[in-house]
Amino acid sequence: MNTRKLRDLIGTKTLLLITLFVSSLFFLIFILLLSRSLLVLESHSIIEVLFSSIWNPDAGQFGLAAIIVDTILVTGFALLIAIPISLLSAIYIVEYAPRRLRKTIRPFIDVLAGVPSVVYGLCAFLFLAPFVQNVIAPFFGAQSTGLCIFSAAIILSIMVFPIIISLCIESFDAIPLSLKEASLSVGATKWETVKKVVFRASAPSIIAAILLGFGRAFGETIAVNMVIGGTIRLPSSLFNPGETLASLIASKYGELMSIPLHESALMLVALILFIVVFLFYILGFLTLRRAKKRWKY
């Protein structure tokens, strides 16, 4: 009896320690990034770093504005394509598609959610970029090497599809049948039912899915790095090369680790990534809680 109690005590304490350790990782990362980026913040004001678009490490200038604009463009454009297409596809798969198709599509989508981003990047570099260079850019009357913001956004949206779709399918499936039947029985068409019942009833999960898609698109490093071109200048069109926050770290870190001020600037970039993801999760958490109350069924 006594040994069992002792074991219970030891086990509980061990689990507590492990849990505390992993939770502290959250703060550890934050503190380490912050302390490393202080160096650049001491010599440059945060305003200057965020709103100046001149990135010239040799002259000690670390303006992130161009990179931030590129990041917003790439992420925003990718989500703008991905969200409507994913939502419509998920609705089709759940509500309209024949049973057989539904059963084959779901495992397929799950596999795709797990395809590594380098694989997407490789395909984008070798096939999407030439396509953009030779067909899409001339179509819009622009000159482009194909390695540009547009290509990065397209490949990101393809990467985000399976994430949003699989989460949405799950939540659409979970809606009680009676809810849909009630709407159909008062004469609503199928699409009206989808619009006014299915979308609302699963609004919290849709928000969560979009948020997850945002996180993936915003933080994607390798695939973006392979196709965006790596130029730090304010873009004048979507067919200009650029650089996002995450891909900047990947392309610059290896070569410039030795210069403290530059390293510190890259740490600041990582810190910004961390803070933005954190803020978005808090925002998502709060919206989710409100939405759950609002659309309770």
Binding site: F26, L28, G215, A250, A270, V277
Partner: peptide
């Protein structure tokens, strides 16, 4: 703790990379 784990899931993997690199 669940919320913190969710954020840790969501942060870009490159941050884990440079975190470990710094250490």
């Amino acid at each position: 703790i669940r919320f913190m784990l969710d954020v840790l899931w969501g942060i870009p993997s490159i941050i884990y990379g440079i975190f470990c690199l710094m250490i």
